[in-house]
Design a binder for these strands. Structure first.
Lengths: 67, 67
DNA sequence: ACTTTATGTAAAATACACTTGACATTCATT
DNA sequence: AATGAATGTCAAGTGTATTTTACATAAAGT
């Protein structure tokens, strides 16, 4: 799973901590998701979509090799 | 989190077992998700979106009381 | 050089997504 | 009424998302 969180943050000049706050998760969670350590839960993906006012698919994308 | 899996299945005349097969999860997982026992993972939501050829948001919806 | 702020990372604990196996219930068909 | 297929559910186990705490590194400003 790829994601555009880092870019979306940069466009808004937000830190990982600020995004974490806005999504009610820890900074480490944002960092881990950005670094591809794990995928967010579906509820968290929905929160991000609401925050950025865009579809989940514009924030998170399956990488092609995933079945 | 609400979802339209049961309806989407019905439109296609699929059983829970058939949907589970198509998504590579157990029948119990489909049943639990349909009954609202838990939310699917984001990768599973993506698989469902691919299968039904529609955005994640047309299959799964946040219920309004969630923060 | 020093300080501050942002980011990367690790370990241990908790919560939850998902599996397998099993059984009970419902419903349609015979 | 009996059978079979679909659905509901439970318990125990595994894997992973997320938290907290803590420390290390990087970058930027003073």
């Amino acid at each position: 799973m790829k994601n555009r969180l880092k870019v979306l943050r940069a466009e808004r000049d937000w830190t990982q901590a600020q995004l974490a706050d806005a999504l009610n998760v820890s900074r480490q969670t944002i960092n881990a998701i950005e670094k591809g350590k794990f995928d967010p839960s579906l509820p968290l993906a929905f929160k991000a979509a609401r925050l950025f006012k865009m579809p989940i698919e514009e924030i998170f994308q399956e990488d092609t090799e995933e079945q």
